[in-house]
Structure formats: structure tokens, C-alpha cells
Nucleic acid binder design. Sequence first.
DNA 1: GTCTATAGACTGATAGAC
DNA 2: GTCTATCAGTCTATAGAC
Lengths: 220, 220
Amino acid sequence: MAGSARTRSRGPYRTGVRRREQLIAVAIDVFGEHGFAGGSVRAIAERAGVSHAALIQHFGSKGGVLMAVLQEWDRQTVEARLADVSGLDYFRRLPAVMGAHEHNRGLLQLFTTIAAEASSPSHPAHAFIQQRYATNLATLAGHLQQAVDAGDVAPLTPAEIDIEVRLVTAVLDGIGLQWLLDSSTDMAGSVDVYITRTIMGWRRADAETTRVATTARNPV
Amino acid sequence: MAGSARTRSRGPYRTGVRRREQLIAVAIDVFGEHGFAGGSVRAIAERAGVSHAALIQHFGSKGGVLMAVLQEWDRQTVEARLADVSGLDYFRRLPAVMGAHEHNRGLLQLFTTIAAEASSPSHPAHAFIQQRYATNLATLAGHLQQAVDAGDVAPLTPAEIDIEVRLVTAVLDGIGLQWLLDSSTDMAGSVDVYITRTIMGWRRADAETTRVATTARNPV
DNA sequence: GTCTATAGACTGATAGAC
DNA sequence: GTCTATCAGTCTATAGAC
């Protein structure tokens, strides 16, 4: 609307975006450390060197801060994540992606804490996290299906693919949590072992193992 | 010390323990839904039909309630968990243990939420969760080592065993989270696929895969 | 043992000066 | 845009009556 031209020298609200980015960065740390419920607007504002009123002014509400944080997390992970690879190569990159988190504890801690918190339907980020997981699983499934179509791995039914991508996701999340609790955990190494072995299994008709296990377990 | 004999008809504080158990059960639900930071003493007391003062009186503080909850969770999982099996059979039971959680969402949600929250060193349950994971990993490692000694699986180095049990733990935690976010997730089935396939891998000298992957990855 | 009443601190959010 | 001042509500915890 009516923006004062004097406050911005070149781009639109030049200093505004920097301030906003800094506020979000601090909010990631605070929400990562104390979760959404435990992280207060005042704590974020104090650590950023502004008043809590200014923070609310920027984002409208505490929930607005959370949404900005989640979108920033989305942006960073999507842009870091492999637009240039597909099929099996997508999975082969996952250990490196995981290893990169070792130098950026805050973002991993944020996501782990919020994802667990948001498992409750009443949590403000519940829908966001649910959709995020659905999208992530679908992306992985697409790459695995592509590997099947290319003949890189033995055929898999959609149900088998679903289990495979859920296991991959579970390993990533679970190893991340273990590293947060014990920094001596070798995230990249552990994930690498899983991915390497799993791809080897996909190559042979190891799908038979899956099929036997799933059908034999069901007593109905 | 000086307990009124009139208030207990037979056992020691007969009604007291029932009340206490009920309060803990409610606290598990509330902390599971909102985490420790987000779950208030008042919410627990209100849902249990007592005043918040009475609840504090029972457990001394909010942190005391958390500790009682964690010990109860410990008790339930330890007693449910397989004192009668060891070696590979211990791993074979894990899918059934996971499947049992499908009928008891509260306890799984509690642990998932608290574990993630407690990844922050300042969290009151941080030490508890850390030790819990260390103990759990050590137990799994002991059973896997036992399987090695019994000749049920090919030899594994301690470092390889460490990765194996971390991956198993990661799958359990990660699949549990996915089920919390999407109840159509087949927890028992997914874990069963992983366990069955992994044990098959342990049988052959699949350890070579592990060794190749771990050494090839390190650029040092 | 459980209650009511209350202390004392912190919460998210708003109003208005500059 | 950021501040100070302030709101009404909630939090944990304590004191004291019954």
C-alpha cells in the first residue's frame, strides 16, 4: 500500500527483510530448544534485541511466528534437497543431507520437536506437519517408482513401495533424534549403512522378503 | 511416618495408590497431548476431578508429576517387554510390541513428545531420556551380541552392532511418529518387514555391506 | 487428604507515544 | 517501525481451613 520511500534505499523494504530473517532465525532456535508451547514470544524478542510488541507486530501473533518459521524451514530444506537428482540417486544423497545437519543443530531440533508436538491434532502446526509428511513420502515413492520403471531395481507393488519409503523416513527421523540426544551418533554413517544395504536389497528380488513377511504376519 | 490407621482399611494407603495411579494416567494423557511445557497442572487436575493444589500436594511439583509419569511409563514398557526372550527372539518380538501400541495411543504419544522435547539439555527430563536411550541401545546390543556368540548370525564388530541397534531403534521411533501423524500407517507390518529382512541380512555375511559402506564414506 | 484463597510471576496481545 | 505501558488471563506453588 502506502510505503515510505525514504525507509528503503533500493529493494522493497530492504532492511525489513533482514530484520525479519534475523527474527525467524532466533525463533527457530527458541522453538527448537523449548518447542512451540514452551518457547515464548518474549524469549524470542529478548534474544533478538527487540521488544515483544515489535515481534508480534511483525508476525501478527505467536502462531504467525510459527508459520513463518515452518515456511523458512521448508524453504531451506527444499532448496538444499536435490532438485538435480532423481531415482536411486535421490536416496544415495540422503546420507550427505543428514550429515549436513550435524553442523546445523537448530533446524533439526526444531523440526524434531515440532513434529512430535504436532502429532496432537489440536496443535497449530498439526495440518502443516501432516501434509509435509504426506508430500515427503509421495516424493520418495515417486523416485523409487521411477527406479523400478527404469529397471534399476526389481518390481515392487505400491504397498511395498509405501513401506519402503516409510522405513527410509523413519530411519532419517529416528537417527536424527538419537544424534540430538547423543552427539557422538554418526548420522551420516548410520544412514549410509541403511541406504546402501537397502538399495542392494532392492536390486535383487528382495521384494520377496517383504511379501512373505507382510502376508505371513496377518492372522485374519 | 505417622500415618492415620483409620484412612487405610487393609494395605498401606489403600485408596491413596489408586488415586495416585489415576492421576498419573491422566497426566500421561495431558503431557502426551500437549507435551510437558504445554501441559498444565491445572489441566491434569481438572480432568482428574481434583483441585490443582491436591495434585501438587501429591507430587510436590510439576516436575514431580513428570517424573512419576516417566517411571510409570518405564514400568509399563519394561514389564511388557520380553523378560522371557533373548538373542534374535528379542528382535522378532518387536513388531508385536509395536502393534500393541496401536491400542494405546496415549503412551506412545507421551514418549514421542517428551523424547523430542527432552533433546534440549535444559529440559527436566533430558537426563532421564538420555539414560533411557543408552540403556535401551545397550540391551539391544547385548541381545545381538548373544546371537553372534550363539552362531545365529555372522560375526559383527562392536561398531557394526552399534549401528545395527541404532537403526532398529530409529525404525521403531520413526514408524511410531508416522502412525501418530497418520493412523493408517501399519506399524507392526512396517517394523516386521524391517526386522525380518534385517535378520536375514545378519544371517548371511551381509556385514560386509556395512563394512564397505562405513569405510568408503570416510574421506579422512 | 482435599478444598478455597491467594501470592507472585509469566503469558499473548493491544494502545498509543515517538 | 520500534518503543513503553498496560491489559486480562494463565501459570506454578503455598497457606490455611475443614
